[in-house]
């Protein structure tokens, strides 16, 4: 099944944790390092996320994301290391260029924070079916319309891409160049926008009508075909995270 979601179907206990708990985990991973801004705590949080990703057997999928993030962060490290106001202690001297300890330390904090958040998000995105997440949120009271839009985007965009490649194939078979230099590609792409965009606008209108007659705007309370998935551990995990957060706050205030 074509899909643009990054979800990886695997058997693991991480996949079995409920989406809402994973959302809480993201929140947890963001606020703990804010409450306790020390290296050790950030490193522990990051370590936990990475261990979870390994258990979920999705480490390979994270590599492109991590590479991208590191690519962005390396520039932060360089700029802060070289130019941060308050740089005093030289750590490394290369000719006229000096790396400073203060700047590097500051940059490292940022690196840990960002990687930490990205990792927590990846736990959610890579191990949760988008439709499960949305269904969980709708059951919690999110508007079904917003839920519908989110889920359908995951299915309808790949459909649009299929349409696009069908038209591309048709054009290629009529001798139009669609590969090669960027300019050639762009030239081949532009005439597609008309039919594809117009087509999907018409489709959107027709789909909206089809949804209407299937009671999408009905005021009846909605029911669900699938039983609400029960996740035995979610209460426990949420409770642990709450306790840890409270401890962190206490630590910060009294020690």
């Amino acid at each position: 099944m074509k899909s643009i979601s990054l979800f990886v179907e695997r058997e693991s206990f991480v996949h079995g944790i409920d989406p809402i708990t994973k959302l809480y985990y993201i929140l947890f991973a963001i606020i703990i390092p804010i409450i306790l801004p020390s290296f050790t705590i950030s490193a522990i949080c990051l370590g936990t996320s990475i261990i979870l990703l390994i258990f979920a057997k999705v480490m390979r999928k994270t590599l492109p994301v991590y590479s991208f993030v590191f690519f962005v962060l390396i520039t932060v490290v360089i700029i802060q290391g070289l130019f941060k106001p308050g740089n005093e202690t030289v750590l490394l001297q290369l000719g006229p260029v000096a790396m400073y300890k203060e700047g590097l330390q500051f940059a490292l904090t940022i690196v840990f924070r960002v990687t930490n958040i990205v990792s927590a998000f990846m736990i959610l995105v890579l191990t949760t079916k988008p439709s499960d997440l949305v269904e969980a949120l709708v059951r919690k009271g999110m508007s079904p319309r917003i839920g519908y839009v989110i889920v359908s985007v995951f299915q309808i965009i790949p459909e649009m891409m299929t349409t696009m490649s069908t038209i591309m194939d048709a054009q290629r078979s009529r001798g139009m160049e669609t590969e090669g230099k960027l300019l050639v590609r762009i030239k081949a792409f532009i005439p597609l926008l008309g039919p594809v965009v117009l087509g999907s606008l018409i489709n959107t209108k027709e789909r909206a009508m089809a949804l209407e007659v299937r009671g999408f705007n009905s005021r009846n309370p909605k029911t669900y075909l699938n039983e609400e998935k029960t996740y035995p551990n979610s209460r426990f995990i949420q409770a642990v995270m709450l306790v840890l957060t409270v401890c962190a706050v206490a630590w910060r205030m009294f020690l």
Partner: peptide, 20 residues
């Protein structure tokens, strides 16, 4: 096709869920 359901079975359920 609603575009929000993964299987034909669930797709048919869409309207039924809406009417409760």
């Amino acid at each position: 096709v609603t575009g929000s359901k993964m299987t034909v079975y669930e797709e048919i359920a869409f309207g039924l869920e809406n009417i409760g």
